[in-house]
């Protein structure tokens, strides 16, 4: 079942067009990876799914992104509501300068949770889901900035899970992490797939091959090829895709 569908999505920064006629569908409860060389627009594309591009002044978008049958770029759509359904994890771990507990509770509070016990439950559940609970359960009131990079990134995942999204977007979540921390996050993504739809941007092709079910290859703002990961990596239809995957350019 499709959860995200883009229709003729075009995007400009000022007068420069960054995305060209993107048409793709993202399957529910699957991991979809977006790959491509730097500057190909993959991060820009993923940011269309939760309207983060709205924060950039000169950004202009045409076409539509339909999530759960609802066009998030229609006149009456509210970006704030969209973001409550679509969580996001960034390239660099960006925990708030608050305690570990407060970082996760922040998301729940946005959802209107006030009761302390309920908050405690959500914090524990989210941290467990992000496989961080055992490492931090004795120091929930310590600053989130005291955690290691990998822990911080899992905290950011926990924070996103606390708003109970349907979709989680990950924008190169491992690019600032060491291999061990990266492995942990990749395992975590496998686990998350059971409950959530994950869209991940990565420039690491092995990572895309390891974690994803579907892969989209972008080049110069165009979606060159989209399909099952196995097919893309073993039997690409497009010459460009093959060249990229075999490392002949990038």
């Amino acid at each position: 079942m499709e959860i995200i569908r883009t229709v003729n999505l075009n995007l400009w920064y000022g007068s420069k067009q960054v995305l060209f006629d993107i048409n793709m569908g993202i399957e529910k409860n699957r991991v979809t990876a977006l790959i491509g060389p730097s500057g190909c627009g993959k991060s820009t594309l993923i940011r269309c799914f939760n309207r983060m591009n709205d924060l950039i002044d000169e950004c202009r978008i045409e076409g539509s992104v339909i999530i759960d049958g609802y066009d998030i770029y229609s006149e009456d759509a509210d970006p704030v509501e969209v973001r409550k359904k679509v969580g996001m994890v960034f390239q660099k771990p960006n925990p708030f300068p608050k305690s570990i507990y407060e970082n996760v509770a922040y998301g729940a509070r946005i959802q209107g949770v006030k009761d302390k016990k309920e908050l405690d439950r959500i914090v524990e559940r989210s941290l467990k889901q992000a496989w961080l609970w055992n490492e931090v359960k004795d120091r929930l009131n310590e600053s989130a900035l005291s955690l290691s990079g990998g822990q911080q990134q899992r905290l950011c995942i926990a924070r996103a899970l606390a708003i109970e999204p349907e979709i989680i977007l990950m924008d190169e979540p491992c690019s600032a992490l060491d291999p061990i921390a990266t492995a942990k996050i990749e395992d975590l993504i496998d686990e998350l797939e059971k409950k959530y739809t994950v869209v991940i941007v990565t420039h690491n092709m092995q990572q895309a091959a390891r974690v994803s079910d579907y892969t989209g290859f972008l080049y110069l703002g165009k979606l060159i090829e989209f399909g099952e990961t196995k097919q893309i990596f073993e039997n690409p239809r497009e010459e460009l895709t093959e060249k990229y995957i075999t490392g002949r350019f990038g």
């Binding site: 924060l55 704030v80 973001r83 922040y106 998301g107 996103a160």
Partner: peptide
Amino acid sequence: PYEYIEGSFALGATKWRTIRK
């Protein structure tokens, strides 16, 4: 840092909540 602001928006916080909290 802009990352904090971005992180808050991505969770579905309003601008005022982001500024305040």
